[in-house]
């Protein structure tokens, strides 16, 4: 083991908070792309004010990225 251990505190490690949020987003992104691949017909449904699920989910992924990024910034600052 070197002193550049990725789990160390010398700034070369990704934080556990970051990794947790990363996996949350992987689930969201993977789930959406899985739906596009397997059941694209479901994305044509219009459950929200006449706008279809494809657009709602796509916009949601963009907003989710921003929300997680801001949450990460505050969580890291608080530590």
């Amino acid at each position: 083991m070197t002193d550049r251990d990725p789990r160390g505190g010398d700034g070369t490690a990704a934080s556990p908070v970051g990794l947790t949020l990363f996996f949350v987003y992987v689930l969201l992104y993977g789930g959406f792309m899985g739906l596009v691949l397997v059941r694209p017909d479901l994305l044509a449904l219009r459950p929200f004010g006449g706008v279809n699920l494809a657009i709602v989910a796509g916009m949601g992924l963009i907003v989710a990225a921003f929300v997680l990024a801001v949450a990460y910034m505050f969580l890291r600052s608080a530590r």
Partner: peptide, 11 residues
């Protein structure tokens, strides 16, 4: 950018 922020940026 999620990969960039959560995994890569600081290291």
């Amino acid at each position: 950018w999620i990969v960039a922020l959560f995994v890569i940026a600081e290291p």
